[in-house]
Nucleic acid binder design. Sequence first.
DNA 1: CAGATAATCTGACGCCTCGTGAGGTATCAG
DNA 2: CTGATACCTCACGAGGCGTCAGATTATCTG
Lengths: 211, 211
Amino acid sequence: MSQTLAIDGRPLGRRAQETRRRLLDATYELVQTNGIRDVRVVEVARRVGSSPATFYQYFRDVDEAVLVLADEAADEIAPIAALLDEPWNGKGGLETARALVDAYFRFWDDHRAVMRVRNLAADEGDRRFRDVRNRALGQVTDRMARNVAENQRAGRVPPEITPYSAAAAMVSMLERMASYHFDLEPRGVTRADLVETTARILHHTVTGRKT
Amino acid sequence: MSQTLAIDGRPLGRRAQETRRRLLDATYELVQTNGIRDVRVVEVARRVGSSPATFYQYFRDVDEAVLVLADEAADEIAPIAALLDEPWNGKGGLETARALVDAYFRFWDDHRAVMRVRNLAADEGDRRFRDVRNRALGQVTDRMARNVAENQRAGRVPPEITPYSAAAAMVSMLERMASYHFDLEPRGVTRADLVETTARILHHTVTGRKT
DNA sequence: CAGATAATCTGACGCCTCGTGAGGTATCAG
DNA sequence: CTGATACCTCACGAGGCGTCAGATTATCTG
């Protein structure tokens, strides 16, 4: 993000920055409402009152615009991951776990459409999306693994558990629940239930402590 | 699946059945290699040596073909879900958990490309894909919830946990790990580690027992 | 097995989006 | 106000979409 460039390599002036921003926002809206597979460059352009050719000045294709959005979203993970630096063992440990889950859910609520595309593209093998995902998830996974390892050394977590695997499993659970919760809620589970239960599973898996 | 029909409602004869099957298989291959967003009906047709018009006799669009594949895959879940009917509390409980995780991973290894599309489409709100997903995941989730509830009644699982939420969280973990494991393995975690760790988290969350 | 009938397939077409390059319009410095 | 630069668009060839009328292939009947 140090210096955004147009597709031909020139740096962007004020007007161009604004156009690019509006294109990004319009892309987000369309991905959200139509789903990634029904986003037409023509429509993104129309929505910001410009032409398709303009879009291609800033992005090679729709994916690249979404990649930028995913990259921006990744920046918001830091404060969430920081919740794993607080002590999970003591009194407020469970409360911190709750805060983590809640923050993660909110993060997804804000970026759902983009996160879905990021995950699909990453899963389908797209390198750029994998890298963005790793940059985001790595912050959480690494800290979780470290915490598990500590508690394992203290004998609270069984030795058969691999800290990194456990961290990956917990992040998987978090991500999917965050992505999924609003599909569950109509079926009689409240968001509060989901947060509480998820937090407890995390808390136990990290600390090995009974709750 | 009782009686498959063409798009115009006529039932299918032998030749048509075969054509449809080959179209489905070709669709699968292309989704797998190109990703869903780069599947061209033209190419599916070419691959089975027929014309695009033929494809449209059996499926309204590529999605519909993938939906059929997802539906077929859902049928393979039953024996996996059945592992949750075995006792998880006794001696072999942990081993059953391992078997479940392993089976789930293998299921995804076989159907990864289709499962990804199913989940994307379901998340994006497509009703048909949601229903297929619920049919598949429901089998697992319901049984898990029942098991958690039992162990909760026996006092081993804390009362603050909602059985259905816990089941959803576990299924989320399972699904995502199954989808994800081959992205983790190059980073120094073995599949065996992933299975073992995931199984232990599941086992504890279901039974509340120390492992 | 011929001829009729039904089932299945395809050629060909109009429509739409893609992505590009040449040229037009806004903006800014002096 | 004028030129220079930054930004944008027009217009177009290429290619996939989805349809329908008609050709081709299978099946049935006597």
